[in-house]
Amino acid sequence: MKQELEALREKAGRELKKAADRGRLEDLRVQYLGKKGEITALLRQMGKLPADERPEAGKLANEVRSFIETELSGRAAEIKEAETAERLKAEKIDVTLPGVRRTLGSKHPLSIELDDIKEIFIGMGFDIVSGPEVEYDYYNFEALNMPKDHPARDTQDTFYINDNILLRTQTSPVQVRTMEKQKPPIRIISPGRVYRSDAVDATHSPLFHQIEGLVVDRGVTFSNLKGTLEILLKHMYGEDTVVRFRPHHFPFTEPSAEVDVQCFSCHGEGCRLCKGEGWIEILGCGMVHPKVLSNCGIDPDEYSGFAFGMGLERLVMRKYSIDDMRLFYENDVRFLNQF
């Protein structure tokens, strides 16, 4: 019995080492450990042994079984590893072949910039308000301190529908409408389409976008105007942006200013980008003219405010070095997909 068991161990060890795949391994498992396997067969004969030999034989039989089990699982692991290695080798691909691309939609560059600016203002507590593009003369001009004979009202600048209705030349009428409806405190920006009677060329378009803002509250000062716009411009152009406020004139603000940032390219020395001025004009702003406040039913002795406005197209053109405004409205997919 003992010899048989030893012979079995030796034979099984040899055969298991030779087994090349899982199928053969399974066959060997059945052959040795199965219900009708060789170990089982030997164990059945155990009864025929003298009683004093049985414990030793039993112990040996268990050793042989456990040897075969260990060898089986060891060999199984080896075979799996080899198979995996084989599979991985067979499945190697050329990773430099092109990926399968989906068609993604692109946001219009003007929307990208506008959304960025909206986020900045929402962060500063502003709401976003819109209003009609076809507008009454009153809201576009008169309420904004631009009487009937103001030069900005020349028909060469404004598209008229009739004497009282026009295409808004600025988004300021939205500010007037807001002030009429809402009591201070007011913090809004009004982005939107505006219209000027300019023939189309690389830097002009009869339709473009403006972003205007308005703040009205008790105790709003010119200092706050500077503070707010500096935050905006540093968000837009970086913390080290140099900003200057330069006196200017707008009929609806007093004092008024134009805001320049120091040329990003020459840092004030003067170059082609800034046309030798060293500064790039970004926006117009000022303290809301008291007459405008009272036109809108807000007491200028109690409240003060500031307003500002900028053209979106020019901001985006500078940002991406776009040299022709027409590209925005031609909507060639080769242009749109760049953003």
Binding site: F121, G125, D217, G227, R244, A257
Partner: peptide, 18 residues
């Protein structure tokens, strides 16, 4: 204009999309 101090708006306000 450059000598006027720049100061952020006072008072909190909640800006939001409608």
């Amino acid at each position: 204009y450059d000598k006027i101090t720049a100061a952020p708006l006072a008072g909190g306000a909640l800006g939001k999309y409608t």
